[in-house]
Design a protein around this nucleic acid. Structure first.
Lengths: 162, 162
DNA sequence: AGCGCATCATGTGTACCACAAACTATTTTC
DNA sequence: GAAAATAGTTTGTGGTACACATGATGCGCT
């Protein structure tokens, strides 16, 4: 029956799990990610790449390290991400003016175009995801998540380890 | 503490991304998942397995399908999950009384013990994750996430037994 | 009775992502 | 300058979701 990307059945989350906010976040997170992937599929851009483009578009030149910190992405994950973006001509690696170890990253015009289209698609996906919430509720949700994200935030000092 | 505004050291999500609730959810989701993984590591139980135990503990006999739906897990993922749990003696696959295609799943006493310990650990992890929020805020967050999760994951069908 | 289709469990392969560890080239620091 | 720190890279591990194909079984309809 070829149902689309959405879940076929009527899976109702089980009460025992619905209690766990952490579980909810985790679950919803992968769902959101998937939804984003699907939304951006026509651009052949993964959420990770999209995040990178997003940041690069607003900063004049960044190193991979800086970019990684900006979006909470591991340096080793950055490599493949930038490789891909570069091979697609969406960003460029240029020699860093003052540090020959580092690369200076620049978004290209095609990169900006892709980003613009991606933003529309991502926006739509988000609207769909947050459909059950009012604008006000969305703002509240956003605020709460942001605070949690920043606190739990990127490791550097990962005491979250346990 | 480690909450840095965004300066030299402390992380700090980039403004361009911080706007996207979907991105936040996705990001936070994988973070939460990893945190759970780490928390449950001493029990050698993955979040997925923990979720399964959780549900099995409150239902008298389920098929893998039912379990899968309860926690939003794909049937093909269930197999490995149950395989693992069974090999550990935490759950049992018994012949289903009325459908020979299906397996009837039962949690064992060791499974319940593991679950109990897991709940404590998971609770701690969650407290840590939600540390920046007050009890009230946590409730709000939970409610919002739940609504999103229910709408997103499922159609609208909500016979969430409880 | 028999046939076709839905369903349960399963296996295989793909995709996404994070992170640790090891290594090279380079910059900083002492 | 030699040692320590840093940017980028490669490789391997762990966790998860999902699509698709398969075999066994159940079920409805003729």
């Amino acid at each position: 029956m070829t149902i689309g990307p959405t879940l076929p059945g009527p899976p109702g989350l089980h009460a025992a799990l619905v209690r766990h906010t952490g579980y909810l976040i985790s679950r919803l997170g992968s769902h959101a990610q998937r939804q984003f992937s699907a939304a951006l599929e026509s651009l052949a851009v993964t959420p990770r790449m999209w995040g990178a483009l997003n940041v690069l578009a607003s900063e004049e030149m960044m190193t991979q390290q800086e970019l990684g910190k900006s979006i909470g992405m591991d340096p080793s994950t950055m490599v493949a991400t930038i490789d891909e973006l570069e091979s697609r001509g969406l960003v460029q690696r240029r020699p860093h003016p003052s540090d020959r170890r580092a690369h200076a990253l620049y978004i290209t015009q095609p990169g900006r175009d892709t980003l613009a289209r991606g933003r529309r698609l991502a926006g739509k996906a988000q609207d769909q995801l947050l459909a059950p919430l009012s604008a006000e509720e969305r703002a509240v949700l956003h605020d709460l998540l942001l605070r949690v994200a920043q606190a739990a935030g990127q490791g550097t000092n990962g005491p979250i380890k346990n």
